[in-house]
Amino acid sequence: MAKEVKTQNLEMAKSLRQVTQDEWYVPGHRTCQGCGPALVYKLVSKATGPNSIFLGPTGCMYVANTSYLCAPFAYPWMHTQITNGGAVASGIEAAYQVLIRKGKYKGELPNIVVMAGDGGAIDIGLQAMSAMMYRGHDALFIMYDNESYANTGIQTSPATPYGANTTFTPPGKAVPEGKVLFPKDAPQLVIGAHPAVHYVATASVAYPVDLINKVRKALNYKGPAFLHLHAPCPKGWLFDAAKTVEIAKLAIQTGMWVNYEWEKGEYTYQHTPKEYKPVKEYMKHQYRFNHLTDAHLAKMQAFIDAKLKAPGKPIAVPVQGPREQA
């Protein structure tokens, strides 16, 4: 792919005051009260501005945003099937490159942004996402992570944490903890296997300026970039809808979520607490973990402890099969 056409340099914000008051994700949707993914969309849209094309693989940010003959997107937006956000983005970017090369399009290459949920990014959508990263298309793939298939009524996804109660991982006598598997590590999937990628970062709705700046940094890089954004879901995780940001902060304070950047092989960490709280402090607010015993919580704590011991390195996770239940 020709990479020399993009010349934009989106500025970093030092505080929310420096962030535009213009909205490109506007009223006109029916997302839930306290929706984390909707907040992600709002912040990402502020970061990209209007010269953007957004692609939404099937998910709650497609269905809840586009019902009733209206949508909140003030830029061109397209629904892609849940399998293929990365593939459609590849086609759009490649076509722009041709138009630019032949002088038939004189403008700036728009920001091509895939806004995929966790299923559309690392489950059914993994193949197309990975191929977009592999081929080096100048597009940004965002995985807004609400840790479930929320659109179809909260089923588990590879991003759903161990122990969560979803409609496909119901806790009961035979399987007391509900979900028995530990999640895939999305950013490490991208970092570990895609030489064309130079920028991968994680961010959270708890820190909006950081999130906006990471989107801009990702867009300033020529070539593909990947962002993993934590987006708490009151409906799926079953917590008070007023506490979305609080839950997101607790995730960081307990080590359940780590904000970091990976730029050309170098890791830097943000918002690292001086001392991590026990994961229980995060989990106790969410009814999806309500059935877990102390043994289950200890298993989760051990998993997080192991993760946090290896900062800056791909995190090795002990493989947990369904038969190895606590």
Partner: peptide, 8 residues
């Protein structure tokens, strides 16, 4: 989805 939910 309910077919799967029931069988899960």
């Amino acid at each position: 989805t309910e077919v799967a939910e029931f069988l899960s």
